[in-house]
Design a protein around this nucleic acid. Structure first.
Length: 469
DNA sequence: CTATGGCACGGATT
DNA sequence: AATCCGTGCCATAG
């Protein structure tokens, strides 16, 4: 066996390669199961509590970025800070004592709402706060609104109201946005706030919801117009915007098969495999990318076990040696998996920075093949690394990693914008020429397809938008 | 005659 | 090798 050149991680055997490949394609949830399994049946493997920063090797205290690295790294403004981040177990209902929780089918795809939300926010909560968050989430009514008062929660946990409010705020800002609000009004306000980060919203919407809520629900538009001193037409347009884009019952948009088929809001219930955040909310501050590792602590070979092998009886020795082999293989594969994902994300985030910060309009159509040559790995490696994984963006949206490789999302978004601002229903061929002026060359037929994807009606059915009363 | 959706083909992507 | 996607052609609706 030859080693042509020495790498950080060198592939040793075919078994190694095979396992690396399978580990690479696993999501955090699946990986957690895999590690649990390996840990329970291989005595040579050990999980030690203390953690070391994967970048600089210093021991880490709390979860989150290593202070040393992130500060040191952020000097380089071009590259995002990327690191592998150990995470505590997200499961809130079972204490760590019960480690296997019917681990067979505990995939993250079909979580209930509380679990789903908790997974999003738990990274930024202290351990004690997670309990409170879980309590809040379990106190929701079926619409996703809070069924008990904030004060009673504070009393229950013997903590100040302000702390509960802070946690509740985190919950309402998670997907589905507005969940956990105390009222429909609050839910709408939060949604509006989040929405305004990515698109422009009617100027009056906020004030209208905040002060005229009961009139809105009773559809007394003329009275609202009088109260706010604007024309009734403006009121109606704003209300239209509200009913179209906001959802008074956060939980229903995903759970109740209300309204549109779930195609429209293709939310995926996953804990994120990768979390992208921005430390300050400044748009120029570097992005922080965390590759989520589903265990807290460091996985390594148990040194005691290793030395014990020496003095083992003959028959045991072989078996134990085998365990040792497997353990080191497993650790190496795990490292390589993280290494690959890390390299990929580092490059991906720099290239798609505009998309991450400013929305889908700025998504660059990149292909997996491109990254394969870029990182000098096989295409299938990238495929494996991308498939099934999910990313949490700074705006808390959780999107599939595949979205980063959507070849037409940017055009579709521009198309959506054009249509939403059209004065007059534009036909497909007209849309083609408008897109052309913006640098997008697509065929007429393709525009039709994009419309279909975004479920936008054809031009002749699109007029009912702003009809005068 | 114009606008749109269906089917199918070829090239790119996985 | 299998799949996805953009596009051209044609039928149909208005």
């Amino acid at each position: 066996m030859f080693q042509s050149h020495r790498q950080v991680i060198k592939p040793l055997t075919t078994a190694h390669l095979a396992q690396t490949m399978t580990l690479l394609s696993l999501t955090v949830g699946e990986l957690r199961q895999e590690i649990d399994k390996e840990l329970s049946q291989n005595p040579a493997l050990e999980l030690i509590e203390e953690r070391h920063c994967p970048m600089c090797g210093r021991p880490l205290q709390s979860s989150g970025p290593c202070p040393v690295c992130s500060t040191a790294r952020s000097e380089n403004e071009e590259e995002p800070v990327v690191f592998i981040s150990p995470r505590e177990d997200f499961r809130y209902h079972s204490d760590s004592g019960e480690s296997e929780y019917d681990s067979g089918e505990m995939t993250s795809a079909g979580d209930d709402l509380p679990t789903f939300v908790l997974r999003q926010i738990s990274p930024e909560l202290e351990k004690d706060d997670r309990k409170i968050a879980a309590y809040i989430l379990l106190s929701l009514d079926e619409d996703g609104l809070l069924a008990v008062s904030i004060a009673s929660i504070a009393q229950y946990f013997h903590v100040p109201v302000s702390r509960v409010l802070e946690i509740q705020k985190a919950i309402t800002h998670a997907e589905p946005v507005g969940v956990g609000s105390v009222s429909v009004k609050d839910a709408l306000l939060v949604q509006l706030e989040v929405l305004s980060e990515t698109q422009k919203v009617p100027a009056l919407a906020y004030e209208m919801i905040a002060t005229q809520m009961d009139l809105i629900s009773r559809k007394h538009f003329s009275e609202i117009a009088r109260n706010l001193g604007v024309s009734q037409r403006v009121v109606e347009e704003t209300v239209h915007f509200i009913t179209e884009n906001l959802n008074p019952y956060p939980a229903r948009s995903h759970w109740g098969n209300h309204r549109q088929p779930e195609e429209a809001n293709n939310l995926v219930y996953h804990e994120p495999d990768i979390i992208i955040t921005q430390l300050n909310d400044k748009t120029d501050s570097p992005l922080v990318v965390e590759i989520v590792l589903p265990i807290s602590g460091t996985l390594r070979i148990n040194p005691l076990f290793k030395s014990a092998v020496q003095q083992a009886s003959e028959e045991k020795k072989d078996e134990w040696k085998n365990d040792l082999e497997r353990a080191s293989l497993f650790v190496k594969c795990l490292q390589q998996r993280n290494h690959t994902v890390l390299r990929l994300m580092k490059r991906l985030v720099t290239l798609q920075k505009d998309y991450i910060l400013f929305g889908e309009k700025f998504l660059r159509p990149l292909t997996r093949a491109f990254f394969a040559t870029e990182l000098d790995v096989h295409e299938s490696t990238i495929s494996r690394a991308v498939s099934g994984k999910t990313v949490q963006l700074p705006n808390r949206r959780i999107v599939p990693l595949e979205k980063f490789f959507d070849r037409s999302l940017n055009i579709r978004t521009v198309l959506r914008d054009i249509i939403s601002e059209e004065q007059h229903p534009l036909s497909d061929s007209e849309l083609v020429s408008i897109l052309e002026t913006q640098g997008f060359n697509v065929a007429r037929r393709t525009v039709a397809k994009y419309r279909a994807m975004e479920n936008i009606l054809p031009a002749h059915l699109r007029q009912g938008l702003s009809k005068a009363a």
